[in-house]
Structures are given as C-alpha cells and as structure tokens.
C-alpha cells in the first residue's frame, strides 16, 4: 500500500516539481558551477514559502539570475531537455526594473506552476530572469523550437497575462541561433 506524506494531504500539490536556481558569477568558478540550486518544491504552499523568503529579482545585483525549471532540467542550453528548444524573450528597459520586473517574473512563475499552458505545459522547461545593466530580460524556455503550435500558444498566454501591466513584445529565439550569434543579430522565429 502506498503511503502519502502528511504534508501532501493538506497542501495543494503541483503537477510538476520545480527547482529554483540562483546564478552569480564568481571568478574562480566555471559558469556551470555558478548556477546554484536553492530549493525544490511541489506544492502551492511551498512555492510561496520560498518566493516570500527570497529577495525579489529587482534587488539582485547586476549580473545575477534566478531560474525556475522543472526538476531535473538545468538552466542551461546544453541540458538535453533544452538543447533543441528555445525561449520567449521579454526585454525590459532600465526603468522597468523598479516598476515591472518583479511583477512580470511572478506572473511567469504563476503561469508555470499553475500549468496555465494546459496541454502545451509539457513543452515548458522553465524560465530565467537576467538582471543586467543594459536592461533586464525574462526568458520562458521551451523544449522544441520546431513545435510552432505549442510555442505560439505559450507565447500568447504569457503576453495576455503580462498585458495586465503594460504593452510588451515577446520574441522567440531558438537556443541554437542564440549560441551561434551574439547581441542583437539573433534571428527571431516569432514575434508577438
């Protein structure tokens, strides 16, 4: 007979277990080693306990990231779950760090843990927020850059959720294209 942990009887279980990662560059470590797992959770209550406990993204030092991925997927292109995929990218200007970054990031997290993409949720690997001097970025990573239907549904859902705040443009890039090029020359597969 299968036993259920007492916590799970009173907490609200999530469809997936998610892991929160923190990235901070340190000169004596490899880039991969600078990605640190903070915690994993699989209930609504544990998500909020973690989220309420950590610094908001807007208070991170420039150069740092938060990532939240399904358990077992590392927040990097090279991971086997990500390597054929891509990301919806939301670019924020400098002023938006104080006004919108935290809201956007929270909305993206809620979409993911709530499985708001419905049958397309299986295509979602995770999301990353990059805090950068030239402008912050939020990326929603999907598993396969060829699955146009899922990519568009996921992008449209993100866009409609973020409309609560302001007009935003979302661009989808394949990781393979981003890896080969630098800066603004990356070709976008979709813009919505």
């Amino acid at each position: 007979q299968k036993t259920v942990a007492p916590d799970m009887l009173i907490k609200h279980p999530l469809q997936n277990t998610w892991t929160l990662w923190f990235f901070k560059i340190e000169s004596n470590r490899s880039w991969e080693d600078c990605q640190v797992e903070i915690a994993s959770f699989n209930t609504v209550e544990d998500f909020w306990a973690l989220y309420n406990h950590i610094e908001p993204a807007s208070r991170l030092k420039v150069g740092c990231d938060y990532s939240m991925f399904k358990q077992g997927i590392k927040p990097m292109w090279e991971d086997e779950h990500n390597c054929r995929g891509g990301r919806w990218l939301i670019n924020l200007n400098k002023q938006q760090r104080s006004t919108e970054l935290d809201n956007f990031w929270m909305e993206v997290l809620l979409l993911m843990i709530g499985e708001s993409f419905e049958e397309h949720s299986d295509e979602v690997c995770g999301a990353v927020v990059n805090v950068r001097g030239k402008g912050d970025k939020i990326g929603v990573w999907t598993a396969d850059a060829k699955k146009n239907d899922s990519i568009l549904k996921i992008g449209e859902k993100c866009k409609s959720q973020l409309k609560v705040y302001n007009h935003v443009a979302l661009h989808y890039q394949a990781h393979s294209a981003a890896q080969q090029k630098t800066g603004s020359a990356i070709r976008c597969l979709f813009t919505i």
């Binding site: 279980p13 469809q15 909305e107 809620l110 709530g114 708001s116 949720s121």
Partner: peptide
C-alpha cells in the same frame, strides 16, 4: 492522467494564507 491546473487568482489568494 488529469493535469493539476491552478488559476492565477487562486494562487495569489494562497500567497498569504497561514
């Protein structure tokens, strides 16, 4: 099986529940 879906409003309500 059935996917466990939560609405945004519900998730936000849960934020400060004890």
């Amino acid at each position: 099986g059935t996917r466990i879906i939560y609405e945004r409003t519900f998730l936000l309500q849960m934020r400060n529940s004890p």
